[in-house]
Simulated assay, not measured.
Amino acid sequence: MKTKDKPQAKQYVIYSRKSKFTGKGESIENQIELCRQYIAMHFGEDAAENVLVYEDEGFSGGNLERP
């Protein structure tokens, strides 16, 4: 008899990028917070608190050599 596999839990990821510092409101932190709010609204608070966050600040989109 074959058993069904359990569905995998979903993992949400936020990728935030800003190529240069401008001092305006579009900071990495603001981007992440807005994404968390969206995830919380559509997928629940637990999903929003358990996201993986990748921050890519200060690197041009044309440069693939990043940390």
Rank of each mutant, 00 (worst) to 15 (best):
D5F: 06
A48H: 07
S16W: 07
K4A: 14
V51C: 13
T3F: 06
M41L: 11
L52H: 03
K24E: 12
Q11C: 11
R36C: 01
K2R: 08
S16D: 05
D56T: 00
E55T: 04
E26K: 14
Q37W: 07
R36F: 05
G61N: 02
G44W: 14
L64Q: 03
L34A: 07
R66D: 10
C35N: 04
E45G: 10
Q11F: 13
A47P: 01
V53W: 08
S27C: 12
F21L: 09
G58W: 06
S60Y: 11
P7C: 02
I28Y: 03
S60P: 05
D46W: 10
E55H: 00
K18V: 13
P67K: 03
Y38F: 02
T3L: 07
E57V: 11
Y15N: 09
F43P: 02
I32N: 09
M41N: 10
A47H: 02
K24A: 13
E33C: 04
D56N: 01
E26I: 05
Q37F: 03
M1S: 08
Y38P: 04
A40H: 01
G23E: 02
Y12A: 06
S27Y: 13
K10N: 15
V51A: 05
Q31G: 15
G58P: 03
S19M: 12
I14D: 04
M41A: 14
V51R: 05
P7I: 02
G62H: 08
F21V: 09
A40Q: 03
K2P: 06
